[in-house]
Amino acid sequence: MSLVQAEARVGSAQAGLRLDQAVAELFPEHSRSRLSGWIKSGELTVDGVTAKPRTPVAEGAVVRLAAEVAVATRDRSEPIALKLLFEDEHLLIVDKPAGLVVHPGAGNRDGTLVNALLHLDPRLEQLPRAGIVHRLDKDTSGALLVARTLAAHTALVALLGERGIHRQYEAVVNGNVLAGGTVDAPLDRHRSDRLKRAVTDSGKPARTHYRVRERFRAHTLVECQLETGRTHQIRVHMQHIRFPLVGDPLYGGSLRLPRQATETLDSTLRGFRRQALHAERLGFTHPITGEEVLAEAPRPADLAALILALRQDRERHAD
């Protein structure tokens, strides 16, 4: 448990507002739901007296917060090396390698990104999900955003919900994509396979923008930008338009080789055991400092080798 203490005086801008509305402005580092809970528990008072969330507040009233916050993340820390793309006292951006599970779960209690983050900064145990703002699948590599303070976490989660965080990916897909476009198709759990997601009319809205970067004989390198961030979104959307990601164990289908593929391409495609997807760029306005943050994760070696093999195969058959 840790003690959270704060004090603020109601100004003219908050005068007459409901208490829960006023404290949301006075203590923006805390979520509305958490503040509401503290009002109801009596840990947030007005002039030393408990009040209800709907009670109007008067200008000049003193609002005091004295609350105990339980540890939000109970996983243990582990000395797992992490490569950082950006770091300051408020947040950090990790270059997550493929194969690293983000959150501990059944069968993966240790060796996850959360375990590594708790070793890097033990204070993250006080934050939901150890400060992780969004997620990447285990076998997707690239930039992942983590808050280091409650204020930053609250602001970044809100920014993500407002689509204020630019997320750009690159992917190698099966097939020849002729032009860029947008996939606007709602996603929900697959009806029969609990590990998968599927396009369904009853799902949550999901939109992915994509454009062609480079064409090969039977594959395409595409750039994808997320407007929403549903589980497996790019993977499902690209399969939906019949261009599944190379190596995707859930949505990729059978191995696809161009005719008379080079030995290098044949072995590279057969040996590529993960979805060919990389979160290459994150961009947003820093919620605390107001500075523009742009982080780019370099293309990992396995994806670089795949793209090189595809280029060499294309050049060999150019004539």
Score class of each variant (00 low, 15 high):
E25T: 06
A276T: 09
V4D: 12
L277T: 11
L17Q: 13
V94G: 02
L100F: 03
K138E: 14
A6I: 06
D319V: 08
S41Q: 14
A67R: 02
I165L: 00
L35D: 10
F27I: 12
D248A: 08
D266K: 12
T149G: 13
P56Q: 05
R109K: 12
V69T: 14
L17W: 12
A51N: 01
T140R: 05
A301M: 01
D20G: 01
R274I: 04
V293C: 07
Q14C: 04
V10T: 00
H119Y: 15
E291I: 06
A158L: 08
L294W: 04
D88K: 08
L195H: 10
R129D: 12
H90N: 15
D137I: 09
L85W: 06
G164W: 11
T112G: 11
G111N: 10
A6E: 07
G48L: 01
A152E: 12
H153S: 13
V114G: 11
A70Y: 06
R76I: 10
R167N: 06
P258E: 01
L145S: 09
R235H: 09
A295M: 10
S31W: 03
D201S: 08
L118T: 13
P244R: 07
H153W: 14
R9I: 15
E125N: 14
L84T: 10
H103R: 12
P300M: 01
E68W: 14
D302M: 00
R191D: 15
K196W: 11
Q126R: 15
R189L: 14
F243A: 02
A171W: 03
H166S: 12
V94P: 05
L19K: 08
H103L: 05
H90E: 15
A185H: 02
L255R: 08
V222Q: 00
G175Q: 09
N174I: 07
L150P: 05
E25F: 08
L159S: 13
A147L: 14
A318T: 03
A276M: 09
M238G: 07
T264P: 00
S192H: 15
R76T: 14
R34N: 04
A151M: 06
E214G: 00
G111W: 03
P298C: 02
C224K: 05
L145N: 06
A13F: 01
E315Q: 11
V94D: 02
T55D: 12
A304N: 04
L26K: 05
G161S: 08
R109V: 07
N174W: 10
R34H: 08
V94K: 09
A261D: 02
V183L: 06
